[in-house]
Write a protein that binds this DNA or RNA. Structure first.
Length: 757
DNA sequence: GTTTCGTAAATTTTT
DNA sequence: TTTACGAAAC
């Protein structure tokens, strides 16, 4: 990340940037191209508001895309001001809304101690509601139901609207509408809000209590929104309401809109100009990040999109190292090549590992990469794959804490009651659930009063009562003890350490995570803030629920960064490797089907390319294991959009080595490849072997391909089965006497006709 | 009849 | 890493 001299920051601003900083009153839309210094503008603007215009920090409402970005921005502002901007409201839409709602929950019929349901909680609630309401979870996948409901919420559409205009045969939409209608009351009964609710409830609050809207409008004199292209309609509405005074600065880039699948709507950028009349439009088109070569690559890709607002990015960094495009045999070979190359460049003193990032479309791809880095002993850090707070042991303990904070949290109850096993299984829990529904009480209350449940055997009633007693006792202590102490007592009470260690060697790692959780709980107890925004325990839980994936780092600080393209938004590195550039993976097959989806994938590719300052590597594999199956891959259509003049095309040695068969030879190559001397790859002139043609031998042998056998002669491949050593091909030989044969590739010694020719 | 435990299948991107 | 299913154990 670019470091700027602290005191003289504004001198470093170009005219457009300065205009964005100095336009203080009235609406402002900043169209900020990639790498055009928008973070710098935002921080300078906030610092100027406070320092030069005397705006108290607590009157500024600044929305960032991740909490990490908020933290960094706050630090930078602090450095500019040479003091801590305490009181400033800065964070994601979700965390700012949660903070606001904590103060106003009671007006909406929620308790102040409401909990935030994460994706898992919501899904399991949906499943339970479906069961309760007699909808088959087999016929109607809960995930599909959830995504319909979430989509409706993001559009601010009520349940009834979900089934409107839908064919009466579209049972899924009808089921979703029914579950959606039941979900509101269920969430309220559990005193819980899901991610979408965090955005919708403030709107309801402002609608039902105009005085609260006026109060917040009067409080937040200045509003800033980063990554505006990725806001959804509810978020836009929130800004429109809070920012009715017009002092709203929105910063975005329509070419970097990559969250359409979760309700983000680029139209918000055009609507801003309509809804905030007299809005000033500032374009930041000078890129300070990348070489011309990198920008040429990015522009080539994004130019294929239609309906762009349009802008021209320029850079003074003419030229630059060519973009290296690498064809690999499979994902393991791809990882190996990437690791070797990065190792080579690090050894050559070109860049340090911390200056390099490897990006991918799906989290599943991180595994092969991680293994490659580990095998080679090259340090790396993995961002966001599994959040700390998503680990089983952490979720188990957080479920207890949630239940202690909010006794109505049924999802927390169901998780906590199952760890450790208490002899209370599905049947008993279903009975408890039915009774709770009859009594209109949360599960914990029902468990406490389980003596009144005739259907339960006495020992089960006792087990429920004991569990409720445990929670009640801890809740009692939570009133005057710090969170960390409560957590410690809880761990002792359920003998969690022994439970983990009984799981074997893995349990020790898990126990380490528990200790880490204890440490972070201890940190939190120290922070003192306004009581109206919740107890330390409540804020600790909210923080855990709203942490973004980019906030969770595993590995060495000085290592190569590994993360998804989505997580990489807003970041930059001197060296960026984009992996898995194959049709069906990037762009994803599902997205390829609709034009909107494809355009969004293309923007995602643009985001990835523009993360690079100096050097881009692009890799694709001719075969890739997906879901245990080895599948052939062809180069991504995005690669065709790259200007040939800036490309340096290569293939890995594994692809050159004769006799390579599936994954088998890749392992062998890993041991003794003479790679490092010559850079582990050979340069191929594009004209010699067009990438389209190269794709045809993936994996090495592919259906329809011509091959030659020592004894049987020429033939055509009919099909492939198995992987690695067990890879079998069925070949229809030209000699009708021979006919169709099943051959084990590893032993058959087949040759490809074009190689032998 | 229940619970628990083993094995197998499945995952786009994330607040 | 959960979730789903089947079988053993209680």
């Amino acid at each position: 990340m670019i470091e700027t001299p602290t005191s003289s920051l504004e001198h470093a601003l170009n005219p457009a940037q300065r205009e964005a900083v100095e336009h203080v009153h009235g609406p402002l839309l900043v169209l900020a191209g990639a790498g055009s210094g928008k973070t710098r503008v935002l921080t300078a603007r906030i610092a100027a508001l406070i320092d030069r215009h005397g705006v108290p920090p607590e009157r500024i409402f600044a929305v960032t895309f991740t909490n990490k970005a908020a933290g960094e921005m706050k630090q930078r502002i602090g450095r500019l001001l040479e003091r801590d901007p305490s009181g400033l409201w800065i964070g994601t839409f979700h965390s700012l809304s949660a903070r606001l709602l904590r103060r106003e929950a009671e007006l909406l019929g929620f308790g102040r101690q409401f909990t935030i349901y994460d994706e898992d909680d919501r899904l399991s609630l949906i499943k339970r509601l479906m069961d309760q309401r007699g909808h088959s979870t087999k016929l109607f996948p809960p995930r599909a139901v959830q995504s319909l409901i979430s989509g409706a919420k993001n559009r601010m559409a009520p349940p009834a609207e979900l089934a409107v205009g839908v064919s009466q045969f579209d049972r899924l939409a009808q089921v979703a509408a029914d579950v959606y209608a039941a979900m509101g009351p269920a969430l309220k009964a559990a005193n819980a809000m899901d991610f979408d609710d965090l955005l919708l409830h403030p709107l309801a609050l402002f609608r039902e209590h105009p005085d609260r809207l006026r109060a917040y409008q009067a409080r937040f004199n200045f509003i800033l929104v980063d990554e505006f292209q990725d806001t959804n309609r509810a978020q836009y509405e929130l800004i429109r309401l809070l920012g009715a005074h017009g002092n709203v600065c929105a910063v975005g880039d329509d070419d970097q809109s990559i969250y359409g699948w979760r309700g983000a709507d680029v139209r918000n950028m055009q609507d801003f100009l309509k809804d905030f009349s007299g809005a000033r439009l500032v374009r930041l088109e000078e890129n300070y990040r990348s070489t011309q070569v990198v920008l040429d690559a990015a522009n080539g890709v994004i130019a294929e999109n239609t309906g762009r607002i349009g802008k021209t990015l320029t850079t003074r960094r003419s030229g630059g190292e060519a973009v290296t495009l690498v064809a690999a045999a499979d994902e393991r070979d791809e990882a190996e090549w990437v690791v070797r190359e990065l190792e080579r460049r690090s050894a050559a003193g070109d860049w340090s590992y911390a200056e390099m990032a490897v990006l991918y479309r799906t989290n599943a791809q991180s595994r092969a990469l991680e293994e490659g880095f580990r095998r080679a002993g090259v340090p790396y850090r993995l961002i966001g794959a599994i959040s700390f707070y998503e680990r089983r042991e952490v979720k188990d303990l957080l479920a207890y804490l949630r239940l202690i904070a909010n006794p109505a949290d049924d999802e927390a109850f169901l998780r906590a009651v199952a760890v450790p096993r208490r002899g209370l299984g599905d049947t008993s829990l279903a009975t408890l659930g039915r009774t709770a529904a009859q009594w209109s009480k949360p599960l914990l209350d029902t468990a406490r009063a389980s003596d009144g449940i005739a259907e339960l055997r006495p020992n089960l009633r006792e087990a429920f009562r004991a569990f409720a007693g445990l929670i009640d006792g801890l809740a009692q202590r939570a009133r005057h003890l710090p969170t960390a102490d409560v957590l410690e007592q809880l761990i002792r009470a359920i003998d969690y350490e022994a439970l983990l260690h009984a799981e074997g060697p893995e349990g020790a790692d898990r126990w380490e995570n528990v200790r880490e959780l204890l440490a972070s709980a201890a940190n939190w107890s120290e922070v003192v803030t306004d009581e109206s925004e919740g107890t330390p325990l409540e804020r600790f839980l909210a923080e855990a629920a709203l942490l973004s994936s980019g906030d969770t780092v595993v590995g060495r600080e000085d290592g190569v960064t590994l993360m998804t393209l989505h997580t990489a938004k807003g970041l930059e590195w001197p060296v960026v490797v984009l992996t898995g550039l194959e049709n069906g993976l990037f762009p994803l097959a599902r997205a390829e089907e609709q034009p909107d989806g494809l355009e969004e994938e293309r923007r995602l590719c643009y985001v990835g390319l523009t993360r690079a300052k100096d050097k881009l590597y692009l890799t694709w594999a001719r075969a890739r294991r997906r879901g245990g199956e080895l599948r052939p891959g062809i180069p991504s259509r995005f690669l065709r959009a790259l200007p040939p003049a800036i490309l340096d095309e290569r293939r890995t040695t594994a692809l050159w080595a004769p006799g390579w068969t599936g994954g088998q030879a890749v392992g062998r190559a890993g041991g003794q490849q003479p790679g490092r001397r010559s850079g582990a790859s050979l340069t191929v002139r594009p004209s010699d072997r067009p990438t389209e043609e190269l794709s045809q031998d993936a994996p090495r042998y592919v259906k329809g391909e011509r091959v030659r056998h020592r004894r049987f002669g020429g033939g055509t491949i009919q099909g492939l089965t198995g992987t690695g050593r067990d890879l079998k091909v069925s070949v229809a030989f030209d000699d009708v006497e021979v006919g169709v044969k099943q051959l084990l590739v590893a032993y058959a010694g087949l040759e490809r006709e074009w190689e032998s020719a």
